[in-house]
Design a protein around this nucleic acid. Structure first.
Lengths: 90, 90
DNA sequence: GCCACAATTCGATCATGGTCGAATCGATGA
DNA sequence: TCATCGATTCGACCATGATCGAATTGTGGC
């Protein structure tokens, strides 16, 4: 799945935005953000991890998620802004 | 289909980028840009029209496509940049 | 060691989007 | 009026991604 397709999903987008805003969050904190069942949340978090956009760390029973350090560059590469389109307009 | 999902497709992204770069183009000019069969190109152009990102105009047998005037705003709303994520980082 | 909790994984199924081959439509030229 | 062209639409099918219900795994407390 391309990075663009990864972030084009509203659930994953909300998760990324929350991690960007608040730094590290555990899965239980992300549950209300994702607004999906726990197993579906795990699925989306795995997609984000596989895309290199977030990292995870065990903390006892809990797992903490953080925006990956290269996430901004990956997003910038995958997500040209509307400005790129506007800048190229005649 | 959300605007984000609309532009997350590589075919449609290429079409938008071409129209942003060159203004108006007819379907036959967009054929090599889309890199898909003519009927599939029509399908993607319809998705872009329905999303309000492009407009079309008949010119005899030909149909011209142009980036819609509100496309930049729609894209900006749907496509937050990585900078938005970075700006919100702690 | 057992139980509860947090989190993940699994196989099956569902839903949506994309492609296919063919047909249709509208415009143009002879 | 007919044939051709550019473009679109159609119904069927395919492919991929998302959800579901259940099971599993790892950790911590007693």
């Amino acid at each position: 799945m391309s990075t663009l397709a990864v972030v084009a999903d509203p659930v994953r987008w909300r998760l990324l935005a929350e991690l960007a805003r608040s730094g590290t969050r555990c899965v239980c904190d992300l549950q209300p953000v994702g607004q999906v069942a726990p197993n579906v949340l795990s699925y989306h978090l795995k997609v984000l991890r596989d895309a290199g956009l977030v990292t995870s760390a065990k903390r006892g029973r809990w797992v903490d998620y953080t925006l990956a350090s290269g996430a901004a560059d990956r997003l910038r590469a995958a997500l040209p802004t509307a400005d790129v389109l506007v800048a190229n307009s005649p």
